[in-house]
Design a protein around this nucleic acid. Structure first.
Lengths: 106, 106
DNA sequence: TCAATCGTTGGATACTCGTCAAACAATTGA
DNA sequence: TCAATTGTTTGACGAGTATCCAACGATTGA
């Protein structure tokens, strides 16, 4: 049985303004910094620094990132594993993720 | 009499999340594309593609960009001349403006 | 089978935001 | 001096959003 994926925009349909809007929020920018580490992250993982938020709130933010084309979500049983769409974003907006990574470090 | 400038955050106080939030709006992203051409732009200039918006709305968007640290505004008589803080942004978030410029072209 | 787990959905609430309109201040030119 | 110009400010209003809570569906493990 192959993996199932939640719906997401095609690479060529990713819009810059939606990406920037999605990332212009403290919680979602922190999620990005986690994804940028390359880990595939499950929603209910602890230690993401989001313990103060309700799980439905985190789920909402993850949906925003996915619908903007920033992340891809693989469904595996009860879990959803989220990862950055790094190749798609690098092709669509070259240098953007690299710049954000540097900016998040500083 | 020297030029007068509207208040703006210091370079080291520019926050990535505020910059992204400021640019995550269609009108403000269009303003950025105008500023990226290097022109110093006056608020009431025609041909900016913002004719459908009330002047107070444009003024509001320009204020958001300035307070996020994206632009600098010089006061000259009745006019305000707005320009990108390119050097400051390049120093604070290297590669970000270049990536946005490329992304706006595509 | 059945309880526990993971995540989503819908409702409720408070807050933010984009927009316009009107009033205002400052400046300029006649 | 005085009307026109430029841009800001304030208020109002509707739309969007961030958050929590409760309920739910799907899945897993005992």
């Amino acid at each position: 049985m192959p993996d199932e994926w939640l719906p997401q925009p095609a690479t060529e349909d990713i819009q810059l303004v939606k990406v920037l809007h999605a990332l212009g929020d403290p919680v979602r920018l922190q999620l990005l910094s986690i994804y940028l580490e390359g880990r595939e992250v499950s929603c209910a993982m602890d230690g993401l620094g989001l313990d103060h938020l309700h799980k439905s709130t985190v789920s909402h933010h993850m949906k925003v990132l996915r619908e903007a084309g920033v992340t891809a979500t693989r469904v595996a049983g009860r879990n959803r594993f989220v990862r950055l769409r790094r190749d798609d974003l690098d092709r669509r907006f070259p240098g953007l993720l690299d710049a954000l990574l540097k900016g998040l470090e500083g």
